[in-house]
Amino acid sequence: MTDATPALSPPSSPRLTPAFVIGATLVGLHVIVGLITLFWAPYDPTAMTGGRLAPPSLAHWAGTDRLGRDLFTEIMVGARIALAVGIGAVAIAATIGVTIGLLAAFASRTVDDVLAATLDILIAFPTLLLAMLIVAASDGASLGTAILAIGIAASSIVARLTRILARRVLAMDYITAARVSGTGWLGIVRIHVLPNIWPTLIVNLALQFGLAVIAEASLSYLGLGAPPPNASWGRLLQEAQATVYTAPFGAVAPGIALVSLVIGLNLFADGLRDVADPTRRRR
């Protein structure tokens, strides 16, 4: 080999930033807690296990609610609900959003314009309004309607991002080279478009996950989320609101749980940017 600038250097390995480690740890804790509740919890989350509105004690780490249920148990189960809604909503958003975004990117100018305008309208549509419509159209609020509403709302954002990212990739010469190589449209999506857009996409999906957790808490707070006895952090916060002066601890624990998961997801997303794409790492 004789070219003037030999640039054969070893490939750079991904670097774990502190943000990523802290984020992954916070998210990991919630996941572990959520999984544990599938098999075991300190108390039955629906049973009256102590005095009403009892402050935190050794028996009840986070105190009890107005029905005497153990708040720590409810918060543990709430992690499972929050994660389930997050995973479900992100899965829906990724499936619908990526598909529509890719179709728009490949579509003719007119179809693309129509899709882009539709997405802009959908993005302007508040998640809460969408959730109310979906609840109204179904049998009532449930875990499923919450997941669906949050997922659909997020899918328009994912679709718009996918469309922009895919357009950028499709303009590259390696796509022309692929066409000249006889690669069909599906092959181009699979071999070139998806691998080049997923690092950015996955970061956005992690951020959407955090937003979905907040949206779930908001819906539950408003009574549009999973109905009792599902222990949602949003519902715990709503119940604590009535007694916030007499028993403020009722709001503290679910608040910490919610904020720590969302911060964890955001840090995780931020760190993922560096890990997922070592070639475009920020200095």
Binding site: M172, D173, Y174, A177, A178, G182, T183, I191, P195
Partner: peptide, 30 residues
């Protein structure tokens, strides 16, 4: 039978493909 090389050697190679896969693409696709 008819292949091409493009002007910009940066934009014409997919950054996420290994060189072996880049070169093999015509063989696989065809």
């Amino acid at each position: 039978s008819v292949q091409a090389v493009f002007q910009d050697p940066y934009s014409s190679l997919d950054p996420r493909q290994k060189v072996a896969d880049i070169i093999a693409e015509p063989l696989r696709s065809l």
